[in-house]
Design a protein around this nucleic acid. Structure first.
Lengths: 111, 111
DNA sequence: TTGACATGAAACCAAATGGTTGTATATAAT
DNA sequence: ATTATATACAACCATTTGGTTTCATGTCAA
């Protein structure tokens, strides 16, 4: 069961419906039908979204009887976290500069 | 100059070219032409990507002479960070379990 | 002022995306 | 055995996306 790797994490989370699905699966495992009840679209559409998420390995599904139960697999989000970490230094710099300015102002104001 | 808000951060970073553009702008401000030299596509295509990024407020451009200089605006990434933070608790749980196992092994190994 | 340069904007296009409906198959319940 | 349920899969469709080419405009340099 290798990943076709057609979709990566970035693409997978780009769609708001898929983010909502992830959020639902964060609470607990759910069947396709159960997930569908939370949306205003067909079961097939949701199944497709789940395939995209599974392709990005953000969820995994196992067949239980006639149901397919999907569960969250958050590991691939580490890639996103690492990507973000690189940019954090930039907005942290801004905050640092701001903090410096504020503190300087406080000193000149109060003394 | 309000945001048309057609694109959000999630969509903006979904495209690998746009992520590369962001990475380039992290180093320094650059003109459209300069950015284009790093890619194998037309200047117009890059300009479109920059519009998407600008729409998501991840970059801003100012005209200087006949050039348009774009710079990184990392602030909207905080939204992404917050989104991620929610899911971190899940994979942290897994890591915590792993850490526990490792430490337990170390103790039994070294003492 | 004339030409080269940098961009803007419009028209166009193929492929991908996000949805639908319809049909088939496997499992559960009566 | 029959019916209802849960899903799979294929075909189809409209819109969006990511790219192109072409033409117009503004600015810099000679």
């Amino acid at each position: 069961m290798s990943a076709a790797e057609k979709y990566d994490v970035f693409q997978a989370i780009a769609d708001p419906t898929r983010r909502e699905v992830l959020h639902l699966l964060a609470t607990k495992e759910r069947s396709i039908a159960e997930i569908t009840t939370h949306f205003d679209m067909s079961r097939t559409a949701i199944a497709k979204h789940l395939h995209v998420l599974a392709d990005a390995e953000l969820v995994s599904g196992t067949k239980v009887g006639r149901e397919k139960i999907y569960m969250l697999q958050p590991e691939p989000l580490t890639e996103l976290k690492q990507w973000l970490a690189f940019y954090e230094q930039f907005w942290n710099n801004k905050l640092t500069k701001l903090k410096y300015v504020v503190e300087k102002e406080m000193m000149t104001d109060t003394e």
